[in-house]
Structures are given as structure tokens and as C-alpha cells.
Nucleic acid binder design. Structure first.
Lengths: 264, 264
DNA sequence: CAGTGGTCTAGACCACGCC
DNA sequence: GCGTGGTCTAGACCACTGA
């Protein structure tokens, strides 16, 4: 997608990186133009071609150079501003942020997180059944009581050591039920994404408590050790519940890192 | 800002609430038009006038009724969609979400949270000094070592019971240093907002550990009790560090609830 | 098929920050 | 003053949905 042009035909002012030279738009692509621009600018920032503090070419120039209207270019840059990658200041310009806030691990799964950290994630499947929903689960999934739901209970391993115990409930008709062997090599969110289920939002609650004897044994901790608890309900864009889960993490081995944005 | 008109002059189609009848825009106001619209629509949703599932008037009609262009109206509705209050579907329309995800407690302070819950928050100030930054604090605040920083240590109370111990570091020149008595009645974020400091993003890490003897005593727990730990760095829109804090919460009395949005 | 949101254009004026 | 982003207009065509 990104094309590098080592020498700009006309050097721009010192300190101002000229994105026009490295951005190409494809009018025949189904991908929106503003998205094409944003993607390429983001790549430039990720790769360091656009270093922190670098000023972007201004909207009007960039639009002219790309042969696009200003609103389109503006929409692209706004995407980056919303992500916190650049800062816009009226009368000044747009700059790549200095102190980049780590990309929020929003709506990712533990499996993804561990994969990204090269922690060799593994899974032990304890329960993988379809059963009628009890009252609490029915309320959480927003379905009628005794509706068939998919119940999943797993232990997550990293480098062969237990990290978490995860209990999940999902609508039974959401995706074809995978066998245990599939669940052992793929995260739940990975499976959902693969089946075209797209998460859009989630409600999450994080707390802590002391480990019971059984929990301690399962996770390789001692009784009374602090555990992180996480309860999460995930939704599609249409507001349908995708998944309800209650997870238990060893506090000695895991913490939740994330980025927040905007004052609401 | 919002004006209620009890009787619509011309009843709209059944099931479709006609926002045009209740929305007024003021072209002379310094508040952007799209923001005026979004605010009033949000009020209608909050108040229940726009019930979950209700369809909004479409963009073109609404624009015509308000005497505005479609992009302006669209920007307003997009704000609500970004907040997760409405769902937009091409070929269908815009609906108020059924399963409303609780407003994320993004970048709020514990004091705000407790105030909102009517928990009668209080504060005991343990430390309130300006001192030279050590290596770790200097790195966290992104300032030179031995720069003067404001150090704050407090115990947060709710209904006169201790809930958390909070340690914060801030650039000393950010706001005039308040006396202890001010800190006892106002949250830190409240003070910062009042001084015009606007938080834009934060990096946060939540974990858990067992209470030491001193911590247990301070918080009214027993030694070894599980505590939630939170470490946070807050930034302005320009990427400057506003505050670095390490907090300790009684797990028996507090949990972090928040909403996540978008798949990143 | 008609209706909806998604995208895009080619301009315009304004408010703000800096010089 | 001048350049910047912030806002706004009045159209346009397209893709998708549902009847």
C-alpha cells in the first residue's frame, strides 16, 4: 500500500515533512479515499518517516497535491487526531505527538495480547458445552431464560504457566461451535473475528479478591493470593450481546494496561 | 439550551420521533451548530423523549427542517454515533441504541465517581509539598531530573471510610498550589479543570497485590488483603504530562467499571 | 423500487496563533 | 498581516436495505 520515494522532487521547508511525495490514492479502490490517506500517514508515523514533532503539510496544500477536496483530506487527518497520533492546533498546524500514548488494547482478548508479546499462549479447555441459560446468564446476554447458550471455561497459559481462568457465555447460534482442539490454538475473539462477528463496544469491570483454595490450585497460586477479576460484556454495532465473560487473573503475572481518550 | 414543545404541529410517521420540532439552533451562538444539535439530541435521549429503539429523522429531512446543510447535521449525528448513543445503518436509518453501554468513566477522577454516586467523598491530605524530582518521577513526568514537582499523597474517604491511598506528582508550575483545606473538599481533577487544564488522554495500568502492614492499617484492611493498584499518566492534547499517579484501592470496596469502544 | 447513510466536491468565512 | 485549522454550504453520486 505504501510507496516510498527517496528523493522529493522539490524539497519542502526544513522541519516540514511533505507527505504528498509519499502518498498515493487509488480512486478505483473500494477503500474510501480518506481511509487510504489516513492509513498511509499512520504507516509513516509508525515507521518513523514522520517523527514525533514533525509537522504535516497543511490541509489545503495536501488536498491540492493529491487532487482531492479539502474535506476529504481533513477527514483523514481527523482520524489520526482521534486516535491521538497527531495534534492539531489552529493557526499552527498539525504535528505528530511527542509523547505517544500507547495504542489502547481496546476490545482485544488476552490471547491476542499474549501473542503480541510473544508469550506463547496456550489453552486448556475445561468446559465446552451448550446448555440452557440460567437467570443471571440470560440477563447478561439479553436473551430469554433457558435459551440455549454456549458455555466455555478455559485456563489460559503463557509459556506453559497458568495465567488466567476464563468463563464465557455466548449465544449458541452466533458461530458454529468449535471443537476443543480449535480452542486450544486460537483465542475466542480470533474465532469470532474469523466468523465475521465484529465487536464494537464493551462494558468492563475490573476488581480484585483473594483466591479460594480451588482457584489457587488451578492457577498455581497459594490460597488467599490476590487475583484480578474481570467481567466483560461485548456488543456488536447494533447493540446485540456477543459475549459475557468472567475472568480471573493471577495478579502476580498480569495487569491491565490501556489508554483512555477524551473527556467524554 | 433545550426547549420542549409539547405538541408537534404536524404528527410525524408512527414510531419515528421528529426531532425538528424540539430542536432550535442559534446562529449567533459561539457554540458550533453541529454541537448544538448533538447536545439537544443527547438531552432527548437522556430524558427518554428519544426512547431506545426510536428512529431519528433522517439526515436530509432534519437538515431541511433546521435550515442547515446535510454535512452539518451529519456531523452532529456522527458525534452521537461515536459516543455509542445511536446506531447508524445504511439503507435503514439511525436508531437510539437498545442496550446502552454505560458512559465510560474515561479520564474521570475517583472523587468525581464517588460524587456522582452520592458517596460523600472526603480526603485526608498526608503530603502536599514541592520537591525536586527523582529519576523515576522525572521520567514519568517527562521533565529533567531535580526539576521541582508537586507531590501529593492523600487518603480518599467515602462515607467517612477509607477507600484508597493516592500518590500523585504534577509539574509544579501547572496550577497555583492549593492549601490542604482546598484539597479536602475538591478532587484533583476538579481543581485542574477549574484552572483550565484539559486532560485529553491517559495511559493506565491496573493490577492487584497483597496489602503490606502499613497499607492495611491506613486503609482499614488486614495485612495480606487484596488491593487494586492503578498507575496513571495523564496528558494534555499537546502531549504534555499533566499528572502521574500511583493509587491503591481496597478491593473489597472498589472496582473499575468502564466502557470500551471501537476495535482500534 | 424508494429511502437511507457513506462518501466526495469546490468552494466560503471565521477564530486563533504567531510575527 | 498571514497562515492555520474550525466550521459551514449546496449540491452530487454511490452502496446498501427493505418492501
Amino acid at each position: 500500500m505504501r510507496v516510498t520515494t527517496p528523493n522529493s522532487p522539490r524539497p519542502s521547508s526544513p522541519g516540514i515533512w511533505d507527505p504528498g511525495a509519499e502518498i498515493l490514492v487509488d480512486h478505483s479502490s473500494p477503500m474510501p479515499l480518506y481511509f487510504q490517506i489516513a492509513t498511509q500517514l499512520e504507516s509513516a508515523i509508525d515507521s518513523g518517516a514522520l517523527a514525533p514533532g514533525a509537522r504535516l503539510d497543511n490541509e489545503v496544500h495536501l488536498a491540492g497535491r493529491l487532487g482531492l477536496s479539502r474535506p476529504t483530506v481533513r477527514q483523514a487527518i481527523q482520524m489520526l487526531a482521534d486516535k491521538g497520533l497527531v495534534v492539531r492546533k489552529r493557526g499552527v498546524g498539525t504535528q505528530v505527538v511527542h509523547n505517544r500514548v500507547k495504542r489502547g488494547v481496546e476490545l482485544t482478548s488476552l490471547f491476542d495480547d499474549l501473542s503480541a508479546l510473544d508469550q506463547r499462549p496456550g489453552t486448556r479447555v475445561l468446559v465446552n458445552v451448550v446448555e440452557p441459560a440460567g437467570a443471571a446468564v440470560a440477563r447478561a446476554l439479553d436473551v430469554a431464560e433457558r435459551t440455549e447458550v454456549w458455555r466455555l471455561e478455559r485456563v489460559r497459559l503463557a509459556r506453559s504457566e497458568p495465567i488466567a481462568r476464563m468463563c464465557n457465555y455466548l449465544p449458541a447460534d452466533l458461530i458454529p461451535l468449535p471443537g476443543d482442539e480449535v480452542l486450544e490454538t486460537r483465542g475466542l475473539y480470533q474465532l469470532l473475528r474469523g466468523a465475521g462477528v465484529r465487536m464494537h463496544a464493551a462494558r468492563q469491570s475490573i476488581g480484585a479478591r483473594a483466591a479460594s483454595r480451588a482457584e489457587a490450585e488451578l492457577l498455581g497460586e497459594s490460597e488467599g493470593a490476590p487475583l484480578l477479576t474481570m467481567e466483560r460484556t461485548s456488543y456488536t454495532a447494533a447493540g446485540q450481546v456477543v459475549e459475557y465473560g468472567t475472568h480471573l487473573y493471577r495478579a502476580s503475572r498480569y495487569s491491565f494496561d490501556f489508554a483512555l481518550r477524551g473527556t467524554g
